[in-house]
Amino acid sequence: MNNANSLEIKADLDNLGQVRDFIEETSKETGLTRECAGELLLAVDEAVSNIIMHGFKSKSDGHIEVEVSHQPDALMVRIRDNAPLFDPTKNRDPHLEISPLERNAPGGFGVYLLNHLVDEIAYRVTDDGRNELSMLKSCS
């Protein structure tokens, strides 16, 4: 099976719930375990939140496309956006050994979560010049 479903949203934090519902429904259709689906949901929400807040700087004139393809025992999620080019896979991990309660402002966790919750993550620039983040979550 290699079906793809996609969702396009305006880059607005109000639409995060819509993205999560889309991922949740698709995960159910493919029979992912609850835990596995929850991890994928968290990774996608963090990725889309980062694009809206940092890529588009919370201006809602941008568009984000979330495409999910079913693969045997796995889901591939591709997120494309027309924000300025940025590779989130190259960001450094936050210093997790320091208590978050001692930091002035915790940050950088979104990218850390992406890298730790999915099995494979890759970034490329599409032929039409958009950011594309691919995340593979396998649950066997």
Partner: peptide, 12 residues
């Protein structure tokens, strides 16, 4: 029902 890393920012 759902919490992202922003929720931890709120706790902080």
């Amino acid at each position: 029902n759902y919490m992202g890393s922003a929720g931890l920012r709120a706790l902080h």
